Structure formats: C-alpha cells, structure tokens
Amino acid sequence: MNVSPHTRHSRKARAAAVALLCLAALTACGGQSTTAAAPAAAPPPTTRFSENGVTVTLSVSDWHAAKGTLTAVFTPEEKGFHLYSTELPLTGIEGVGRPTAMAVSGALAADGKLTAAADVRTISVPGVDAPVPVYPDGPVTTTLPIRADGTGDATVLLGYASCSTEKGCTIPVADRPVPLRITDEGPTFTAP
C-alpha cells in the first residue's frame, strides 16, 4: 500500500498529540513525571516537656549559615492560667511572679532579643502596690534569634511561672535545661 507523505505526517502528528495527552493526564492525576522532584525539606528539630502545669514545645527553624530562630511555646495545662511577661524582673514585682525566659549557652549564642507574640496586660495582685505584667490566659509563643559558635553541646535554659486569678500559682521553673547538639548540618535536640 502506498501512503502519501501527507498521510504519514498526519499520523505522526496524531501520535505525538496522543502521547502529549497521556503525559498530561498522568501528571494531572499524580502519575510519575519525567522531571525530578525537589527534595522535601526536613522538619525543624523539635522537643517537648511538661513541668509544673505548663507544656513547653521547643523548635529551631530557618537554620542557614549557622543562624536560626529558637521558638518556645509555653502552654498552661489548665484553662484560666496565664504566664508572666518576659520583661518582668527576675524576682518578680514585690516577689510576685517570675518572667517567661529563654537563654542559650555552650555552642549557641543569642543573636538578638527574646520576643513574645502576645500583648502584655497588667493585673492587680492583693498586697502588691505595683501592677504585674502578664500575658492573656493560654499559650504564649516566644522567639529568640540564635547563632552557632562552632559545633558541640549547647543548652537552652527556660524559666516561667503560671498563675490563675482564681486558683493561684504553680511552682516557678527557673533555668530548666534542654540539651542540644550543634553539628555542621545544624542543631538537634538530645536526651538529657
């Protein structure tokens, strides 16, 4: 059978169109494509503990060129409890309250100031003349810019106290250590 050049070209064009449609259908339906996918980013190093009525979740994010952000989320375990401001003096106001605090030592150093993602309000405490700065009831997220000073062991030191205007206060936590290991790849939390 003698096939004209126009018919051969038309068959090739149809075959190419069918192949493209099949590839598009595979890609749209989640099939394998011929291009390599970008590797998934590793989840940030995270650890958690609970002590004296508060659960603390720590994570390190945005780690590039030996710098990153250390985040601590302080979550009171009971409703109606608040945490004290990061700006509260170490011994509180007239002995009342303890600041929400986070510091680093060892192979890590602070690269900025600790900040909290919550508005400060003041409360009046019976027997205390000055107002006491606290965060609203519930969780408080704090962040601290950090940088590595080489590789090796590091420690995050945490402090906090939670109180309720109706139920009183929990025992304050001061300088609670959480160990980390700093490698060339970045920080990882280690078992105490």
Rank of each mutant, 00 (worst) to 15 (best):
P131E: 00
T142G: 07
P177A: 03
T91C: 11
T46E: 14
H64L: 07
K113V: 13
H6D: 15
A66D: 12
A16V: 12
V134Y: 07
E77H: 06
R147I: 01
T142I: 06
V132R: 04
T27W: 12
Y135C: 00
R181D: 14
S4W: 06
A66F: 10
A109G: 12
L20P: 09
P99Y: 03
V73G: 12
L114I: 06
T47F: 05
A107G: 10
V140H: 02
P131Q: 02
V173T: 12
L23W: 11
P76G: 04
A72T: 11
S105C: 11
T55K: 00
A17E: 14
V56P: 09
L70C: 11
G150M: 05
P89N: 02
T155G: 11
Y160C: 02
G159T: 01
G127W: 00
R147Q: 08
T47E: 05
R11W: 15
T183A: 09
P177R: 00
A103R: 10
S59I: 03
V120R: 04
G80D: 12
A174D: 12
S4N: 07
E185C: 02
G95M: 05
A109C: 01
P177H: 00
L20V: 15
A110P: 15
D119Q: 14
D175F: 10
T155A: 07
T47W: 05
T141D: 11
V3M: 05
A24I: 03
G31Q: 08
G92M: 09
P179T: 13
A161H: 08
Q32H: 13
N2K: 12
D111W: 05
K79T: 12
G106K: 03
D175N: 15
R11V: 14
D175V: 05
S105D: 15
R11C: 07
P172G: 01
V128E: 04
Y84D: 03
C169N: 08
L70T: 11
F81I: 01
A19N: 05
